[in-house]
Design a protein around this nucleic acid. Structure first.
Lengths: 151, 151
DNA sequence: TATATTTAAGATATAAGAGTCTTATTTCTT
DNA sequence: AAGAAATAAGACTCTTATATCTTAAATATA
C-alpha cells in the first residue's frame, strides 16, 4: 500500500480525536477500542505524533491525547511525513537514489506529475475537512459500522 | 515507496531485456551486473516473471531470459501486478478492507481518482515506450551512468 | 499519603520483505 | 559421454515493520 500500516493507524486515530475536539483529552484506550486497533501499538504511534508536535498528551486520570492545534490546520501530509517520512513525496519510483531532474529514470516525469497531485491532495486535506465529512456523511473509520464511532 | 523494491528490480530488469530485444536471450548475470543488483535475488525475481508469462527463459549455454511478447505489448502495470499484486490499484488508502463505494472511508473518492490516473499511466506505459526513451534520451536505469547500460 | 488512572519508554516477540547460498535440472559444446 | 554454462527450486539468513509486554513516570482523587 502507498502508506504504511502504522501511518494509516495514525491518520485514523487523529481523525477520531478530531471528531471529539470538544473534549479536553481522549484516552488512547477509547480510540483503540473504537477503531479496532491494538492499544499498545496505538500508544507508540501516538507518542510519535506527540513528539512531532501534532498532538499533546496528558498523563493520569482524565488524561489522554488531543490535537496540538485546530483540526483545520493539520493536514494529512503532516501525519504521513511524521510517520513515514518524506520519501513518498520525493523518491524515485524505481528506487534510484541518483535519479533527479537532470539525470532522470524513464518514469521520472510521469511519476513526478502524479506525485505532485498526491502531495497537493494530502496538503490540502485537513483533519477538519475529513472530520466534517465523516460527521455529515457517516463515513467509516473502521472495519465496522460508522455509527459506533461518533458515539 | 509506492512499489516494492522487488518490483522496481523487476521493471528495471525487464527494461534492460527490452533494450536488447534483438538478442535471443540475455543472461541474468549480465543484467545483474549492468543494473548493480544481486544475481541470486534477480534470478528469483525473473523466475516469477517467467512463471507469470511475461518472460521466457532458456537453460544452458546461450540461454538466459527474454520477453515472452513484444515489448510494445507489455505494460508496467503487468509487471507491478505480477510482483506486488492488485492492491495498489484497488486497495483503500487507509487499509480498510470493508471500504467501498457504498461505505467509503473519508479519503475514498480522492484516492480513487488519483489511483485511476496511476493505473492509466501504468497501463499505457509499455516497455517499448520506455526503452525507446532510454535509447533516445540516455535515461538512467541504474545508480550509475546510463552509457554503461546500452553497451 | 495511598491508590487508581493514564501516558512514556524500552525490551522483547512475531511476521514479512529482502537477500544469500546450495543443490538440482536443462542444454550446449567438445 | 563428459564437462561447462545457464536457469529452477528450495532452504536459509538478515533486516525492517508490526505488534506485544513490562516497568516507569505523572497526575488526580479519596
Amino acid at each position: 500500500m502507498i502508506i504504511s500500516k502504522t501511518c494509516d493507524h495514525a491518520i485514523r486515530a487523529a481523525l477520531y480525536v478530531a471528531l471529539h475536539e470538544d473534549r479536553a483529552y481522549v484516552t488512547i484506550r477509547e480510540i483503540s477500542e473504537h477503531l479496532g486497533l491494538s492499544f499498545h501499538f496505538l500508544t507508540k504511534i501516538l507518542q510519535a505524533l506527540t513528539q512531532k508536535g501534532i498532538m499533546t498528551s496528558f498523563k493520569g486520570p482524565n488524561g489522554g491525547v488531543s490535537l496540538a492545534r485546530p483540526a483545520q490546520s493539520i493536514s494529512i501530509k503532516e501525519i504521513v511525513v511524521a510517520i513515514d517520512g518524506e520519501a513518498l513525496f520525493s523518491g524515485c519510483m524505481l528506487g534510484l537514489d541518483t535519479c533527479n531532474d537532470d539525470h532522470p529514470c524513464p518514469l521520472h516525469q510521469q511519476w513526478a506529475n502524479l506525485r505532485d497531485q498526491l502531495e497537493t491532495l494530502f496538503t490540502q486535506t485537513t483533519l477538519a475537512y475529513l472530520a466534517d465529512r465523516i460527521r455529515r456523511e457517516g463515513l467509516r473509520l473502521a472495519n465496522f459500522e460508522a455509527v459506533s464511532l461518533v458515539s
